[in-house]
């Protein structure tokens, strides 16, 4: 198992290299120049050329890329073009905010989505189940930025219960962004849990369990749930990528200084090291969460476990 984890982590290196190469190329081809944005109205040909030389932008793209990768492999994310500070310093501050939003959204969604999904499957005709399915339909179809604006309008503007922006009120500041970010995620978890639970309940081994005299509660939570959770865990893991994408929108709507907004600002300023840094960290998070999903699979399903032993 340890060997498997190490192999998966090593496999991350080429993924990160390809990612950085693609992003590097795209930023290089995008019209606009970091020096123009940095110098602003003070821009002159001479100042621009000097700054380009200073930042290494006068060199061919492949040379720039090779230098960047060489440093990245040593754990150095480079210097921001704009702030001239190490990218790592900016990232580490911003990551904390993003981390809390994502974690809150995940905890909220998993702890609500799975139980609601189970209820919707086991009591499919109740009013609660039906209304939850309507809510989940809204969840999968509503854009994040619009939901965020509506929530701000209701809870911040009319009711005045929760802050509309920033991170200065601790947990209270996290609630609206987490709900906004997680609504779609929760809807996905709920729908997947419901359908896989419905599928599991129809299986022959459930009939075997009932024929043994197992209580209905144990049939559902002991026999069906473990099998039904596999697709749900896939969705939870796969959608971490979607959450990190959503973070960009959420942080923008709620003016939260997080990784997502850093990414947007960096792209606007053509700050290549900063963009790359944020993306590498995000890609790393997605890869790690997928790895965790695979490990949970192995924990739940003995058939998967047997494959890893080989």
């Amino acid at each position: 198992m340890i060997e498997y984890i190490i192999r998966r982590l090593i496999a991350l290196i080429p993924i990160i290299l390809v990612l950085t190469l693609v992003v590097f190329s795209i930023l290089h081809m995008t019209p606009g120049d970091a020096t123009v944005i940095i110098l602003g109205s003070e821009y002159t040909e001479e100042l621009g050329a000097a700054l380009r030389k200073e930042l290494g932008l006068d060199q061919p793209m492949l040379v720039q890329y090779a230098k960047y990768v060489f440093k990245l492999l040593q754990g150095d994310f480079g210097m921001s073009y704009v702030t001239r500070a190490p990218v790592m310093d900016q990232l580490s501050v911003r990551l904390v905010n993003t981390f809390w939003i994502v974690i809150c959204a995940m905890v909220l969604c998993v702890s609500l989505g799975i139980p609601i999904g189970i209820l919707a499957a086991t009591r499919p005709n109740s009013v609660f189940s039906q209304s939850m399915m309507v809510v989940s339909l809204m969840g999968v179809s509503m854009p994040i930025f619009w939901l965020g604006l509506l929530l701000i309008l209701l809870f911040s503007v009319y009711l005045g219960w929760l802050p509309s922006s920033g991170m200065d009120q601790g947990f209270l500041s996290l609630i609206l962004p987490a709900v906004t970010l997680g609504f779609n995620y929760m809807a996905n978890i709920m729908r997947t849990t419901r359908s896989s639970m419905l599928e599991a309940i129809r299986q022959d081994y459930i009939r075997t369990a009932r024929a043994k005299g197992v209580t209905e509660h144990a049939v559902i939570y002991d026999h069906a749930l473990g099998n039904a959770l596999m697709p749900t865990i896939t969705i939870i893991g796969l959608n971490v990528g979607m959450l990190l994408g959503g973070v960009v929108l959420t942080e923008t709507v709620f003016s939260i200084p997080g990784t997502g907004r850093l990414l947007v600002e960096a792209i606007n300023q053509r700050d290549t090291p900063c963009v790359l840094g944020a993306l590498v960290v995000m890609a790393f998070c997605v890869a790690i969460s997928n790895l965790i999903v695979d490990l949970i699979y192995a924990y739940i399903d003995p058939r998967v476990r047997a494959q890893y032993r080989r």
Binding site: D204, Y205, A211, T215, P302
Partner: peptide, 24 residues
């Protein structure tokens, strides 16, 4: 019903491939 199931009356099902819970 739970008292009699598996106790007074038990059933051997048709398809052994699917009658057992794969994760127990």
């Amino acid at each position: 019903l739970r008292e009699i199931r598996g106790n007074m009356v038990a059933m051997v099902f048709q398809d052994p491939m699917t009658s057992l819970n794969p994760i127990k």
